[in-house]
Design a protein around this nucleic acid. Sequence first.
DNA 1: GTGAAAGCGCTAACAG
DNA 2: CTGTTAGCGCTTTCAC
Lengths: 347, 347
Amino acid sequence: MERDKVSIYRIAKEAGVSPATVSRVLTQKANVSEEKKKKVEKLISKYHFSPNAMARGLTSSRSGIIGVLIPDIRNPFYAGLAVECERAAHERNYSLMLSNYMNDMELEEQRLYKMISQQIDALIIMGGRVDELITDEVYAERINHISNLMPVVITGKLAGSDCYQVNLDNSASMDGIMEYLISSGHHDICMIGGRKEVDSTYTKRIRYRSMLRRYGIEFCPDYLVETGDYSMESGYREMNCLIENTRKLPSAVIAINDLTALGVIQSLREHSLGIPEDISLVSFDNTILAETSVPRLTSMDYNYDQYGKALIDTALEVLEGGKPQKIQIIPTELIIRDSCRNLNIDI
Amino acid sequence: MERDKVSIYRIAKEAGVSPATVSRVLTQKANVSEEKKKKVEKLISKYHFSPNAMARGLTSSRSGIIGVLIPDIRNPFYAGLAVECERAAHERNYSLMLSNYMNDMELEEQRLYKMISQQIDALIIMGGRVDELITDEVYAERINHISNLMPVVITGKLAGSDCYQVNLDNSASMDGIMEYLISSGHHDICMIGGRKEVDSTYTKRIRYRSMLRRYGIEFCPDYLVETGDYSMESGYREMNCLIENTRKLPSAVIAINDLTALGVIQSLREHSLGIPEDISLVSFDNTILAETSVPRLTSMDYNYDQYGKALIDTALEVLEGGKPQKIQIIPTELIIRDSCRNLNIDI
DNA sequence: GTGAAAGCGCTAACAG
DNA sequence: CTGTTAGCGCTTTCAC
């Protein structure tokens, strides 16, 4: 395991130049004579040499690493976003250091400080506490402190914070779904899932009621179901409950995400209700689950590549002294598949 | 964005000690008087100080980062494994640097060298080229070269390579599924999916035939279907094909993974075949998809936490000069859910 | 037990 | 255009 220590000194020696010259061809920041450049480049490729990023970072105080705090990468939504962040980061020649915090505040703090000691150049925080309607003051204070050290970009809201935000257009996404359903002839529309203290969910609930009003549809409290979480189980449980306790079934159900939609599907099946024949179903996130479920789900897509790119580019722009917009909004688009029925057309 | 440069010098000055002493309390490797230790520790927590890992790494030539090369983190199998690797790494106070290479050889090389220049202490490679039956010589050579620089642990096979391997017990997993099905009264068992040049798939196919022989069941070539990949589409396509072209339908289907199983489900539904009433279904991987599908899938679980821990621990043991076993096998366990019928019991 | 000093590999400023 | 030199922040001898 003896690392064949090849450094710019070794290269310099063999090429008969000074270490500084090697550094110059590496950084491409100064002119070097064609002849010496050739020699050095030859050695570099001979040894597969790439400069020690730690030494480089020591002088430049840049590590070339962006830290990303994620609730749980097994959640397809975050996995998709992480992949796009990685793509965007590599385009700018940065690496990503991912850390899952599993919604554990202590773990999050621990891993955050670990990443800071690794000298990450910027921090991206996805979901979790960063999306709570009521901001946790202690948490906000911590994030503000870190914002002092490096660029911090979050997905979600954090009241009273200095950091940059890249958000999905939650309002437009809900409006879009409602318009799609209503224009397909649906009036009895149910919304299931989520926790209303979460900003994105709160916004969706507000828009849900607002759209009903706009289209002159009476609001039915039974149809606005909060489950407290975003799991499949909750969709299953609450859909069962709805079917068994409601006088009149809705003609369409909006699930807070694909996972909850899967729970709804399971419940409907057990009650011999067909999708979309008896009940239409739409959801948010357009993860792999939407594509693989039966029937395939009509789901709200988030333009993940643009989202990831915005997250990374914002962080790097701040790092380079720029002043991007404090809040950016990512557009959304409904992907129509097989889970909704158009009531205006007889079948 | 002015980093309040707090270093051991600053701490030392304020505590009235030398930088070396601060370093000593940080590393806990030498004795420091209680009094000075207290003082220093107070400053450290006052400033939330954590030593610059790059500077530290420069001297120790350790970065505290393990590189992980992954085909695609959106694949729930890899996401699950990555999370467990992260947990194991953090337990040992290491960070992970994940990189998705999307089955793109060029991308893989690029990101690998990027990670090397970031001074990763060890490398873990999951899936992909590392699991091919016929080893790519150029690739093997590259991995061997890297094995010279740092510990390399792979999931899968790589003939003629120096690196460490942690493998799933593919033979036992296939045997287990076959035994489960056969003991449930199934004889007409079909296996769908995968590419036979992939070592794990190859092994499963061999065991499939071997188990048939052991139980005196005649091998039917129609029932051993290679699809060339691991997608849902292929499961759907080939199951359709089988249903439409075979004289006699199997009573049970083994899918190469959960995703392919979902395709099989879709096909069966479209042909009005019930699961498990008409056809039983088992798959490999036990990802979230197995739990969320309808019906919930009986699937082969891999003990992801043990798997991740073995990967990390092996890498670190080598790093510390130990000599772990070159090849380790992770046990598997069938998780029984709702997709298989016991033919010995009337329903 | 503790401080001074050297050095990890690289970049940048300064002379030539 | 190019070599010399001085750090970047930390750990680690080596004296005291």
